[in-house]
Design a protein around this nucleic acid. Structure first.
Length: 711
DNA sequence: CGATACGGCCAC
DNA sequence: AAACGTGGCCGTATCG
């Protein structure tokens, strides 16, 4: 059997160790033939001893300006020194990564300006253990109360790596961490959104030339409170030491990016506090509803399962019973059942068109939809209640995407966490989410956010005029293209799209996202040449937009990056500068040119990403700026909180006795917080609900309330 | 048996 | 020729 690269390395390490006499045969294998299994056992022991040696080295080679603070006197002296600092690096060590349940076991501080005469290195790196199992130390309550003035101070800036976590941990113990001025993790993302990892332990070797072991490498699954204080000091003080050095490195680089720095300091950093509140506020789920709905879905799934197995089992060969969740099995069985070979099991492209013709396919589609819905959402979410807060919490990661949008879900190193993605909840699962008692959810979206953004960035008069007149841009385009009156191609009396408007929406998004004419034809049911002609004619009426799209591609090709609005954020697309590889005519399928094809595909992808990143990235900035304003308003108002954000939408929770003026406030926040210059006004649609979903308009809500009052 | 890849699908 | 951007997560398949 062939060994993996990882195993090869392990075996080589063992061989080296045996050759140099560092280790010998494994005691458990005395008298047996030397085997790979024994070598791997030796490796495990070797690793353990390497780990122990690493820890010994870390302690032995610890810089002289790392100090353990474990007496009242030492803490008092530290407090004095803190008063002379303007900016300090801060980090917490904790029992785990659940900010609502875990607790702080120690605090690291780097005081950069301290100078202790015999020591060559400037700066002081302190670790204050407060809950380690062993060793002399101060109590957490005492330390936190002594440091309260510092934690509360806006005048002493705090520099952290992943500040959201630490702010939330301090809050867990009833303390604010005010004055955060820099988050090296977020800053790194603005300096390079393509970075493979934003862990301090990966950034330090890469950018500071400092080797650094991860917590897991050094301590495995041992919680930090079980780590002896000498090792804890060396490890924890190094964290703020590295954070500070990374900060200095980043400052130098931001000097060349003043517009990005301005955005970082006025948006991304203040936003961290908004996110902490948003995440902590959390969600309430209607468990009775979830239970009942889950049972309904399960019953239907069982019914479909029995039916499908009845039909398909005969087409399945193999020792194991047929599995409806297995795509390879289903592809084979259904192909046989319907007497034609399916190319794949894509629901939209392959199965849906066949569902009318073949009941078995319709059943399978329903079965898959239901099992996905219950498996991922309806049955899964109820188990994720936080034991401490009794609410459900999501993570909103402000650097989770390359364009600047939020991602939502679990943290990278938190497989066990109860966190979940709140941004991809299907309509049916949203019904589980309810407003807290006495409150309503108010959702406010940016009306046609990305299209307004494009109108502004391209300066296209057709789009700008449409927005000025309050005209629907899709309908306007449809009117132009089909040469029919606007009202005829806008919406149908029942509020649904006309086919013309729908087609324009597809074409619009296709262009924005760089869809090929081939795919567009596929989507609209046209021939490729027809799709090309369609797009050409449409865009010939909007020359400024066409020029803008072209310029974006040229920028990607020339510079390898594009800017979001006002040069606040860069999207680096280095593949755009690659040179295309020639593939001779007729050799397009030739395996010999596979590498050339992939190479050229990367360039095409970069070209498509350019426009998308400008639009999506600028829109994300609008959403983030608006969130800061919305949060500030919520803080001022009793019972108001920011409940969620889904890219182009903010959701508030507010007391149910809200007024028309309250709605007007939300409307102003949405439309005035971040404007597309003076060129394109913002719009917002507001909906009110007690259960997450469609909701009603404010007018309907008030009409309903008034009719109840008069009854 | 664990880590990882992948197809598929939810959202905007 | 390839062919729609940004994500997260599920279950199965695959690898060693």
């Amino acid at each position: 059997m062939k060994n993996t690269d990882a195993d090869c390395e392990k075996l080589l390490a063992v061989k080296r160790a045996m050759d140099t006499g560092v280790t010998g045969r494994h005691p458990s294998s005395a008298g047996k033939r030397f085997s790979k299994a024994e070598a791997l056992r030796i490796y495990a022991d070797l690793r353990q001893s390497i780990r122990e040696e690493t820890l010994r080295n870390i302690v032995a080679n610890m810089p002289k300006n790392y100090f353990l603070i474990n007496s009242e006197r030492a803490l008092a002296r530290l407090n004095e020194r803190l008063r002379d600092e303007t900016e300090v690096a801060v980090d917490t060590e904790t029992t785990g990564v659940d900010v609502y349940t875990d607790v702080i076991v120690g605090i690291s501080l780097t005081l950069p300006s301290v100078s202790i005469p015999p020591l060559a290195d400037r700066g002081m790196h302190a670790y204050i253990p407060v809950m380690h199992d062993e060793g002399d130390q101060l109590a957490r309550d005492y330390v936190l109360s002594e440091l309260r003035w510092f934690l509360d101070s806006d005048d002493i800036g705090k520099v952290l790596h992943n500040a959201i976590f630490d702010i939330a941990m301090f809050r867990r113990h009833g303390y604010d961490l005010r004055g955060v001025t820099w988050d090296t993790m977020v800053a790194m993302h603005l300096l390079n959104e393509n970075e493979p990892s934003y862990r301090l332990k990966d950034l330090a070797p890469k950018y500071l030339g400092v080797e650094s072991d991860t917590f897991a490498e050094l301590f495995g699954k041992t919680p930090f409170n079980e780590i002896p204080l000498d090792i804890a000091l060396a490890y924890a003080a190094k964290d703020t030491d590295l954070t500070w050095r990374l900060y200095e490195f980043q400052r130098r680089h931001f000097a060349k990016l003043p517009t990005v720095l301005e955005y970082y300091q006025t948006v991304e950093v203040p936003l961290l506090y908004v996110i902490v509140d948003l995440e902590a506020n959390g969600y309430i789920l209607d468990l009775d509803f979830a239970k009942e709905y889950g049972e309904q879905l399960r019953a239907r799934a069982n019914e479909l399962q029995a039916k499908l197995i009845g039909v398909l089992a005969q087409y399945h060969d193999g020792a194991e019973p047929i599995n409806l969740n297995s795509n390879p099995q289903m592809k084979a069985a259904i192909s046989k059942a319907i007497g034609r070979e399916l190319p794949n099991m894509d629901a939209k492209k392959t199965l849906k068109p066949l569902a009318k013709q073949y009941e078995v396919i319709a059943d399978l589609l329903e079965y898959r939809k239901i099992t996905k819905l219950s498996g991922t959402y309806i049955d899964a979410l109820p188990t994720k209640q936080n034991p401490t807060t009794k609410r459900w919490h999501s993570r909103f990661n402000p650097i989770g995407t390359v364009t600047g949008r939020f991602s939502s879900g679990k943290d990278e190193d938190a497989a066990e966490s109860n966190s979940f993605n709140v941004q991809n909840q299907p309509e049916d699962a949203r019904k589980m989410f309810v407003a807290p008692p006495g409150k309503v959810l108010v959702s406010a979206d940016f009306k046609a956010q990305e299209i307004r953004c494009t109108a502004y960035m391209s300066g296209e008069p057709v789009l700008i005029e449409a927005f000025e007149k309050g005209i629907d841009p899709y309908a306007n385009m449809a009117s132009m293209y089909y040469k029919r009156p606007y009202h005829e191609v806008n919406k149908l009396p029942n509020g649904e799209d006309t086919p013309e408007r729908k087609a324009m929406k597809v074409v619009w998004l296709a262009t924005l996202y760089g869809m090929s004419d081939y795919s567009l034809a596929d989507m609209l049911g046209l021939k490729k040449a027809e799709a090309t002609a369609f797009k050409d004619e449409l865009f010939s009426g909007m020359p400024k937009l066409s020029a803008w799209l072209k310029a974006n591609e040229q920028d990607v090709a020339k510079y390898g990056f594009v800017w979001a609005d006002k040069q606040q954020r860069k999207r680096r697309l280095p593949d755009g500068r690659l040179k295309r590889k020639e593939i001779p005519y007729g050799k397009w399928q030739d395996p010999k040119y596979e590498e050339a094809r992939q190479h050229n595909a990367k360039i095409g992808r970069a070209m498509r990403q350019g426009t998308n990143a400008r639009v999506q990235g600028s829109s994300a900035i609008q959403t983030k700026v608006t969130m800061i304003k919305a949060h500030a308003e919520c803080v001022k108002r009793e019972g108001w909180a920011l409940w969620g954000t889904i890219h182009d939408e903010l959701v508030f929770e507010i007391p149910e006795d809200f007024t028309r003026e309250d709605i007007a406030v939300i409307e102003r926040i949405m439309t005035q917080s971040y404007r597309w210059g003076d060129v394109v006004a913002n719009g917002t649609d507001i909906a009110i609900m007690t259960r997450w979903g469609k909701g009603v308009t404010p007018d309907d809500w008030f009409a309903n309330r008034e009719s109840k009052e008069s009854a």
